[in-house]
Amino acid sequence: MEFGPHLMLATLEGAVTAAVLALTAAGLSLVFGVMRVVNIAHGEFFMLGAVLAWGVTQAVAGPWGYALALLVAPLLAGALAVAADVTILKRLSYDPERTIVATIGLLYILQQLTLMTYGPEARPVVAPFDARIALPWVEHGAEGWRLTWPWGLGTTVWKLTVIGAAVAVLAALWLFMARTRAGLVMRATQADREMATAFGVPVERVYALTFGLGAALAALAAVLIVPIQQAHYLMGADPLLLSFIVVIIGGLGSLPGTLVAAVLIGLSDGIISVFFSPTLAKILATLLVALVLVFRPQGLFGKRAA
């Protein structure tokens, strides 16, 4: 394949990574922004999303099973996160350091429980449709510009759907934060927890909702990607690492920054993986984090701490 079409394929792979990463990192960023909790267990909620999707599609076969998984997996993961918030984080008064230790514990509990019940195998989840489409390319020939259909230039409809779904969910998340009463209350809590309390905001309930929403976003991202990736009890590590990279680059707690950084890291990950190697992609992303931490510790979009 020529360079142009090859680059287009790599970009598409990168866009899928970016879409899923943006969803996952948005959850991590939201939790950190509003609650100041660094959720080390975030990747496990991603893993639970994939495992639950497998469970649901086993119980209900066909596209309807998958549609059900899209709904059930985020809801269950979110409910579990709410329970963890109320029983663990709240008791630690959301202390930034102690909650790190607590979520590390939560990470191992979720991982081991999954190993004990679901087992060590990687299991596939079938996409609700498996159509492929060929992609066009523009070429300059004797008779001017024309569309061609290079052999091998194509993708699955599912990958395009994943990108579209992630964009839609992120747009909905933005609308929720910017336009609804609950979103307003969350932003006020993020800005000044004590003043929010002084104006009647039930901060603990807001925290529970935020933690649940963050986990649900990770779980949803996993349901979207699991037809491409398979469900495995250790699959939470990569999304956790990448989410942290994205959240640090974008600026802790800044949602727009998180999204821009997810696109940046996702696309470059896809492109570098295709042309060079996935390891190089990870090395460069980690290097970028180091550079950001040295030269712009507040992140590309974060505000400098007062």
Binding site: L184, M195, V201
Partner: peptide, 16 residues
């Protein structure tokens, strides 16, 4: 004040 929130949104929190 709630930084990052608009004037209207700050008032909205009071109204709630």
């Amino acid at each position: 004040l709630f930084a990052g929130l608009s004037v209207a949104e700050n008032l909205q929190i009071g109204l709630m």
